[in-house]
Design a binder for these strands. Structure first.
Lengths: 200, 200, 200, 200
DNA sequence: GATGAATGAGCCTTCATTCAT
DNA sequence: CATGAATGAAGGCTCATTCAT
């Protein structure tokens, strides 16, 4: 009865992650059923439990991994960004848009399925998100202190920038009218112009 | 057994709408049960059906009413806005933020519960949303033609602005650090600066 | 708010009976909803209760009236039938088929919705049905005693004859291939031939 | 909590079929609840769905299996029946009554629950029933052509015969007054006498 | 006599999860 | 590792019936 003999454990686990990502993105966490997920992977629903602890855990793992990767990549990008505070802000913005366009599905889930996390998991993710926001807020504050930027409130301005940038992955399609590079350029330009102090 | 004897039809219908708005905002459409909604209103689940056709219809009604009101208010605001294209853009942006802060819950639902609408309802709402976006895109195009604004792509720039502005109602709380007026001013300022042509 | 002013009480009651007959025939008692019945009559479901005591009572009334009318008509037909026992049997059979073709819907309900009657109502109808069967059984017994008929068991033969005759109203349609008179003649002929003693 | 540990799949499926047959026969399809069916089988209602696709499908399966078995058995019986057309008719009739007395419940359901089938299922069953009727109609036509039988209309006569024969399983009880063999003989006799040409 | 609103019971079905095999 | 079968909880919705107006 066993299927294609031989152990393909890790492969199955990865397939579940991929299919879960796709299905949660398309239908939402609540609307995705484990039976549908299992069917997508080619196994029975009961077999999922050899690879995940629960539906809730699957969501949490996906979101947490995304946030941790985002943080790590962002820090790496900032580590190589030298120059003025404005230059570093530009690097952050460009990296944000680039990464978000690539990880459209993860981003969507990490933003809009948080309410399906139970309180402990929710708190953990919100902490990671806060850490990410803090990176941007810090950049805005450095730029303001240096007199290069002009923002009334660094945190609120940060949220506004993130909102603007993130919106792109709502409508982005690889086969769309603009290239990824053009989208990155447009958003970087708008975000920066919204912040920099005007020359007297 | 009978509660507050007598029939109070319209009052019940309105209460269902209000409670539905609150519960969908808090838990999401999929996670809100009609039993919970009925309990919130103080009636039995079966009695809901004297006022709504289905759970799906309740969602659609809430979202459609919101979109139609938004469109009507926006047109009214633009009707009184005179001056340069930039002035009209400023009026749009200020109105958008103001209205969205007031209708935080409706806005959230109208943005993030659309996937729970069945295809015909979904299409109807997307058409209304598109009409709203078109208002902003047209303003950006007028401003560009007049040489006052500098946007690479009016539609994408419009989406970016809307994303920035709408993000505010994600975190806004009436008892927060900033007043509504300050938030409106900050966002209007950032959005405009991101668009206007720099003086040579 | 009142509809077409003026009292039309009895008319409404009769309309309910007619519509109930039609709907129970078409969908079955269990599958017919009082809301559908009310809609057919042009009133609200609650208003039905000004004319019927309950759904169960409506069914019982329809079936009982049918059985009582059937009994009365049959007795009237037999009262005028003179001649040999065979002649009287022929009169019964002809009357049965004729009446059943006319009351197709009532007959169907009286035969196949009895199980939806609660025990007391069920017993009452079964008693009426038994009385009707007894008319036929008595005729068969008289004919046997007179040496005109040849049936092994009068009651079982009676059931067989009724089964044969009643089946016609399962498929009969006024616009069908055969006239009502032809159908009556065919069934009368077959039933009689199945009973009469063969000439030595 | 767990009952008789271990999975007994096919046994459960068969038990569901048997209990479904009994309950639909006793209460009717509409009146039978899946909860009652599950209780009869000794499992939870939800567990039924490991064995049936829906309540509707259960009904269809029962009726279709009955009709197909009936057709196969009938053909087998006719295959061994030699002799005159009248002999073959006698074989059909005898087999019909015999089989129907044995499958009282299936017969009842197959006759009176058809209206609960949805249109596609209904059409499939009606086609099978028509095929069965055609067997009898063909026998009547052969007998008429051979001059052995005298029926005015083979199809209508066939329906009348089937109506007569089938009625027996409405009242038959194994512990009743007559043996199965006697009932078969009585009906065969009546049906045949109703058809055969009288000797001049 | 008619109605809108309410109710409690119940229906079919789905779901995440468990467990012996 | 995978599976078929089972479960308890729940979910959206329908229904016959009641009652104040």
């Amino acid at each position: 009865m066993g299927r294609t003999a031989g152990s393909n454990g890790p492969r199955t686990a990865a397939a579940i992650r991929r299919a879960g990502l796709r299905l949660i993105y398309r239908h939402g966490y609540e609307a995705m059923t484990l039976r549908a997920l299992a069917a997508e992977v080619g196994i029975q629903a009961a077999s999922l439990y050899n690879h995940i602890r629960s539906k809730q855990d699957l969501l949490f793992d996906i979101v947490r991994d995304h946030m941790e990767t985002l943080l790590a990549r962002t820090d790496a990008a900032l580590a190589t960004a030298t120059g003025t505070p404005t230059d570093r802000l530009r690097a952050f913005v460009a990296h944000h848009v680039t990464y978000h366009l690539e990880k459209k599905q993860e981003v969507f889930i990490a933003n809009f399925e948080l309410r399906s996390l139970d309180p402990p998991h929710y708190a953990a993710i919100v902490a990671l998100r806060r850490a990410y926001e803090d990176r941007l807020v810090a950049l805005l504050e450095r730029g303001s202190e240096a007199g290069e930027l002009d923002v009334r409130d660094a945190r609120v301005a940060g949220y506004a920038i993130l909102g603007m940038l993130t919106s792109a992955c709502t409508w982005y399609r690889p086969d769309g009218r603009m290239t990824k590079a053009e989208i990155v350029a447009l958003h970087t330009d708008m975000a920066l112009r919204g912040c920099v102090r005007r020359q007297p």
